[in-house]
Each structure stands twice: as C-alpha cells, then as structure tokens.
Write a protein that binds this DNA or RNA. Structure first.
Lengths: 250, 250
DNA sequence: TCGAATTTGTGCGTATGTATC
DNA sequence: GGATACATACGCACAAATTCG
C-alpha cells in the first residue's frame, strides 16, 4: 500500500500461489479461510477475498460455498503429436514422446452435406455457398471423450467418388491423406493454427469438462499442390492435452 | 437480491454486455461511469464496480484509470508463424500469411545465472541443480506488449563463450540458431508443445490483460544432434494471437 | 433430527490514491 | 489546479451451503 509496492491482494495471492506451485499446498487441500487469511497477512476482508478471486480466475483453486477454497488437481497434460512429429536421430529424450505419441482410440462421426460459410469458404479457397461435406467427430481415448473435430471437404474434390463420405466405402475411417490418395489427390502440405479460448458450454459438455475450462482449437488445412482439399477445427481440453510439433531447423 | 434472482452485478453486467454485442455500444465508446451506473440501475458502488470487472474479465471492455471504461475492439487474432512455416509452392492463399508472418518488434530482456529446476533439467536433459543461463524477454509489437518468453540454456554449452549472455557480445539479440552456430553448435531440430491456461496475474499484467484471460504457452526446445541446447516458455495472449505451423505431409 | 458454527458469496457505504482530462 | 473516474482498501451485514456435534 506504500508507494512503489504492488497491491496487497496481489501480494497475498502471490504468496498463496507460491505455496500451491511448490507443493506445500497440494491438490485437494483447503486454503486458509478468508478470516484466517485476514489474520495471517494482516489485511482486510476485501483484500483476502480479492486474493482468492485472483487464484480462482487463474484456475488454481476452486471455491465451494460453505465449505472452503480448495487447490485444484492439475493433471499432467498429455501430448498430442501432430503431423510432422518424428523422433530426431539417436535422441534419447524422445522415447517417452514416442510412447504416448500416437493418441489413438475410438471415435464416432456424422456426415452431412452443407454449403460453405464465409469462413470455411475462405479456408478452402472456394466461394461461399459451394457445397461441402461436413463431418463431425468425437474421439475417445480409453473410453473418455478427448477431442472434438469438425471437418469440411469441398464436394468439387470428393463428390461422386468412393471417398465422398469419410466413414463409408473401403477406406472408411482412414485418414484424409489416404482417402485423397485413393482418388489421385496427392496431399503434400498441411497448415495448423493453434489458438485457445474458454470452451463453449456444448463443447465442454461433450468433452466432460466444466464451464469455464479452456480449450485448444486447431484449425488444420490439408493442401494438394497448393489447393486446399480439407479443413477442420479440432477442439481439445487444454488442461489435459498439449499439441506437439517437431520440426527440422533451416 | 430477492430470492431466486441472479446477483445484481451479473444483471447489470448482462445488460451492458447486451448493449456491447448488439452494437449500441460500439468499440472505443465509453461505458457509463461507475457513478452513472449506480444511478441508472439503482445499485451500489460495489455492484457497479463488480459489473465492470465482469466485462473486463471477459475482455469486452478495458478500464483506463482516470479516464473511463472503454469498449474494446474485437480482436482479430494475428498469426504467429513458427519455425517450419514456409509458403507452399504456388500457393495464393498464403500471401496474407507471409505479410503478417514475421511478427517482429522491440524487446527487453534480463539474464541471470540460475540452477536448473527439475522441470527445466528434464527438458534440457541435464541434472537438476546444474547451472543454466536464464533470460526473460518481453516482446513488443508496435509498442504493445505481445509476448513473454523465458529461456534456459545450459552453461555447460555456452559457458565461457562469447554468446553466454544472449543480449551481449557481437551476436547480441540474434536468434538461438545463429548464436549457437558461432560456437560451432549446429542446431538442427526444434520441438514445440503448445498448451493453454488462464494467465497468471503477473503475466497478464505485463501483457496488458486482465485476470482470467487465456494465454497460449509454447514450450520450445532446440536440439543439436539430439542434445537439447536451449528451452523456452513462450506466453502470448490467446485472444490476440494464434500459433501457425506449416508442415510437409509424409 | 436439530441446531450451532464456519465459510463462501454477495452486497453496501465509505475513504483514499492516482491517472487523466 | 480542479474535476472526473478508475483502482484499491477497510469494515460491516446477510444469505446460502456445508460441517459437525
């Protein structure tokens, strides 16, 4: 409160945060109550409350009315290895990545024809209103929902071919690259743009999360000779997964 | 405040939010001041303050001390092109990426020697307690803070060389690859793991955000012949930036 | 089963500091 | 300098949920 210092509530929040991250306040333990914080730090009710709010906004703790404020479990995020991920030559530290690299499991999907929205049209380099095949996926890992995906393919590419529906025909369930190869479309490039935001209610419901949780959003587009042939939005809960890339330098 | 209703501050925040999203309070306009909110909605100072805080946490408005609370411009996320990003052959849709691809600007940094924590040691494949050079960066784009970065380099690699301090010597401010090349360390691989979480109070303070905002965290590690030579945590606000990768397929 | 104590969450009034105009 | 507005801080009150004897 004196000149040059940071606000009292940030100082208190910082001290509590330190105790959380260094393990002296492990998950599931209760934070000091507002009254105790007030006493221990010699601050007012407001400051103690504001400090708790900071930690709640950071997702480190969760308040349970009538009971207390508890340190949240922080699951160790798993890696989702993306295209381009390959272990470098003779690398020892990569055994682990290889082990959990291939996140595969079961999935459900539903396809339907649709017309391209402005955003999708731009990503596929087609005109808005052109027909596309839209497929929604829910991926599960060990039974647990882990990833949502919505993909769009121009019917100008796959229409009237055996691979028009991603989940049917002899190549049903195969990846985009294999399916496109079957109709002589050689996929040679992919771009991925990774962003993040608070998850939408429906997304978190499908993924088994609680409102307010953060999700990673990957906008992926496959190209064949510079022409987009598929684009997708992939949504994964950020508290459980990270997206891993491995690239050569130069 | 009566039974069954939602909290007053949420009601006020909801009404103001409606006016913002439907455009009757366009970007750059000033919200009613705390005092005016108090009068117009017939609530107390605290409720008016709390309502503004909700909108600030949602990133819809930003408070300027002494001036007012202003509706923020809808941030269109910019792309941060990562290593490996190259326009594919003859691609038209990539001109734009190239244009805003190189996000460069000014930066500040501060280096200090430290000992490797368990987490850093694991990423650098060294033993906890070994000495490392730790450098913190704040990058600005057009004067605005846009990215935080903390990097660690084993002193076993750079110690007693001209590039020990990233910001000094003839190669001060150059990239890791160039600096390492100067001491005959050929960086040939990089891994990046992208995650996301609510930003910490200090991070968001430095980045001009507000508690509760989401940040993208990139854990980057450079390798030379399979051996880690630098690792860094890069933090960017997720409402303003996305991370872009471009990869060959197969 | 009941009730008391504790704790969070919300709300009110006020005071002070400080940045902006 | 003065007026305005946000930001921080103090102290208090009460409702709702939980805990525990």
């Amino acid at each position: 409160m004196t000149f040059g210092e940071q606000p009292a509530y940030l100082r208190v929040a910082g001290d509590l945060r330190k105790k959380i991250v260094d393990g002296s306040l492990p998950p599931h333990t209760r934070l000091p109550s507002q009254a105790r914080i007030r006493e221990e730090y010699g601050v007012s009710d407001t400051v103690a409350l504001e400090a708790r709010k900071v930690l709640m906004a950071e997702g480190l703790v969760e308040g349970r009315s009538g009971s207390g404020t508890y340190v949240r479990e922080r699951p160790v995020p798993r890696r989702i290895a993306r295209s381009g991920f390959r272990p470098p030559s003779g690398a020892t530290p990569f055994r682990q990545e290889q082990a959990d690299g291939d996140v595969r499991g079961t999935w459900e999907s539903r396809s339907e024809q649709a017309v391209a929205s402005r955003a999708v049209a731009e990503r596929l380099a087609i005109r808005p209103g052109e027909r596309v095949m839209c497929t929604r996926y829910l991926f599960r890992e060990a039974g647990e929902p882990m990833m949502l995906s919505t993909s769009w393919e121009p019917l100008a590419v796959t229409g009237r071919t055996p691979v028009m529906l991603p989940e049917e025909g002899p190549l049903g369930g195969m990846g985009v690259v294999e399916r496109m190869a079957a109709i002589d479309v050689v996929v040679d490039n992919v771009t991925e743009e990774v962003g993040a935001r608070p998850g939408l209610a429906e997304e978190l419901h499908a993924l088994g999360g609680v409102p307010g949780h953060v999700v990673l959003v990957i906008q992926r587009t496959y190209y064949a000779s510079g022409r987009p042939v598929e684009t997708a939005d992939v949504v994964v809960p950020a508290d459980r997964y990270r997206v891993a890339y491995h690239l050569p330098v130069k």
